[in-house]
Design a protein around this nucleic acid. Structure first.
Length: 164
DNA sequence: AAGAAGATTCGCT
DNA sequence: GCGAATCTTCTTA
């Protein structure tokens, strides 16, 4: 279980969004009702976990960039082959890896008690914003959020519970 | 059918 | 700090 600490938004009409050019086989879950998982492979090495954030048919999602490990740390360390708490979930790919999230989790409803879900957390008042990072387009938009700790995420309990 | 680009990570200098 | 690794998807010929 982790507390989400940093996220980044990809909104409708956003040239940097995977959904910008319409729905495809890969980004299909971005168009699901808000609260569904959108998982994709980046640079052939890492998975990125997003949460769809709009009404059905509208492509938008929030990328989970970093989190704070709360429970099941041993398992996450095993998946990541890393024993530095600071680095365990600091980065989209690292976070997904630590939670054992793969393409298998794509399109899951994160608002239902399934293998992966979101729980209500803190109110959004204290959330800070900044520009997005690592982008080549639309990079200057203030759609990156810090201390976005309003959600708690629970993942699979066993190592490699969900293979790709 | 082929090629370039990409919301990253890791290791080496 | 920089560059390679690595592969899927979309674009262009």
């Amino acid at each position: 279980m982790v507390r989400i600490v940093e996220t980044e938004a990809y909104v409708p009409g956003d040239a940097a969004s995977h959904a910008f050019r319409g729905e495809t086989a890969r980004n299909r879950s971005m168009f699901l009702r808000r609260g569904h998982a959108y998982v994709y492979v980046i640079y052939g090495r890492s998975y990125c976990l997003n949460v769809s954030s709009e009404t059905p048919g509208v492509g938008a999602a929030v990328l989970l960039r970093a989190a704070e490990p709360l429970a099941g740390v041993e398992l996450m360390e095993a998946r990541r082959a890393c024993h530095d708490g600071r680095l365990l979930c600091s980065g989209p790919g690292r976070l997904a890896r630590a939670l054992g999230v793969t393409r298998w989790h794509d399109a899951l409803d994160l608002c239902a008690r399934g293998p992966l879900w979101l729980a209500a957390g803190r109110p959004p008042e204290a959330i800070g914003t900044s520009v997005r990072i690592g982008l080549t387009r639309e990079a200057a938009r203030p759609l990156r959020f810090f201390d976005a700790a309003s959600l708690v995420l629970s993942g699979p309990r066993r190592l490699n519970e969900h293979k790709p």
